[in-house]
Nucleic acid binder design. Structure first.
Lengths: 199, 199
DNA sequence: TTGTCTTTATGATTCAGATCATAAACTGTA
DNA sequence: TACAGTTTATGATCTGAATCATAAAGACAA
């Protein structure tokens, strides 16, 4: 995340998007740095049959879609507003200039990329070798650990994801997630209250 | 990749490993920067039933295991020598000092991380939504495109991976890879000569 | 309060890829 | 040149998650 004042000074524009609106598509050239001011944005892929896979969900203060600004490739996924949103948009060259002039900001982005690699390494390994219940617990724990609200390990964390989103994040089907979540509730690995999952 | 002279000046040590020897394990703290001088190293995970997933294969000149040096987390996977190998090993703080003092090197690593994110985003999406043949073609094309030997798109590229490695990279079983590869040969999407795959 | 959309729920059936079993082809080496 | 280990190959069977079908519960707006 880059400080709002720095963004404005560099000439960033605050764009509005409606729920379900696309910010960019898989295969597009990367021309801007994006940072969420209000709302939520997801990055996703669709296969030939229309099955969705969610690469990541980005909330307030989070940036996304930077990798192609650092290396030379097209977007590997789409970006879509999950809710109505306001998103800072800064041209690539100005973004890179900020990094050049601020080694500490550059370092923070390197660190962000490293964390995302960690998440992806975890997910790809889970998806390719682990069963549904295992995958779901893993991602729940990841979201809990990386939530902004700093809570102890023992306190319950409310998962702000639908069963469908959990499915699209873990490569499962929504029915499978529903059934797995119920089993996990029976095993007391999680709690369901008002249809919401707590872990 | 960091220039050998810079590595030596910074006090890097060239370590020897035998085929199948472990360099570090999942869960270990990251204390060194690693760069392959001779041979090949893979990073992998095993699930409870012992099924392997290969996160990446790193040949001569390639570095690996840097992400936890930038952010604060444990290794998400093991590192194992595929062949007898010599690997540069440089303590974390000296590695970070090199980056601080050489913005261009820092930028190159950011770019490397971005490329790896691209690979992982591709693989996780493929594995979660695509069929075996599709997955295999995707990874073959990726290896072809990223091979050191610069060849045209039309020339044949020899895949230096066993069926088992392809399976462990794509989350499939070796029998499934063998069968899928044969089908792809029939469809003339690839060529098999002396059991080797060409694409 | 009616109607539309989204989300969660549940049972029945199907099927692709995993698993199991077995062996041939090749590689390296003692 | 025999032998142990690795890699590729192939058929038979199994199984867990996908798929299909259907509906109830909740959210939201008109």
């Amino acid at each position: 995340m880059i400080d709002q004042n720095i963004l404005e000074d560099a000439g960033a524009v605050l764009k509005r998007y409606q729920r379900n609106e696309l910010l960019f598509e898989e295969g597009d050239s990367a021309r801007y740095y994006y940072q969420v001011q209000v709302g939520e944005v997801k990055m996703n892929n669709f296969n030939d049959e229309g099955k969705e896979f969610i690469q990541g969900i980005f909330g307030v203060g989070k940036s996304f879609g930077e990798p192609p600004l650092f290396a030379d490739f097209k977007y590997p996924a789409n970006a879509e507003a999950i809710t109505d949103a306001k998103v800072w948009q800064l041209p690539k060259n100005r973004f890179l200039k900020i990094l050049e002039e601020n080694p500490s900001i550059h370092h923070k982005f390197t660190s962000t990329l490293a964390s995302r690699l960690y998440y992806k390494a975890m997910m790809v390994s889970e998806i390719s070798t682990q069963e549904p219940e295992h995958r779901i617990l893993r991602i729940l724990d990841y979201f809990k650990k990386n939530s902004d609200t700093n809570l102890k390990e023992t306190t319950l964390y409310k998962i702000e994801l639908t069963r469908q989103q959990l499915a699209d994040l873990t490569g499962l089907r929504v029915e499978t997630v529903i059934r797995a979540v119920k089993k996990l509730e029976q095993k007391e690995e999680l709690l369901i209250k008002d249809r919401k999952i707590y872990r």
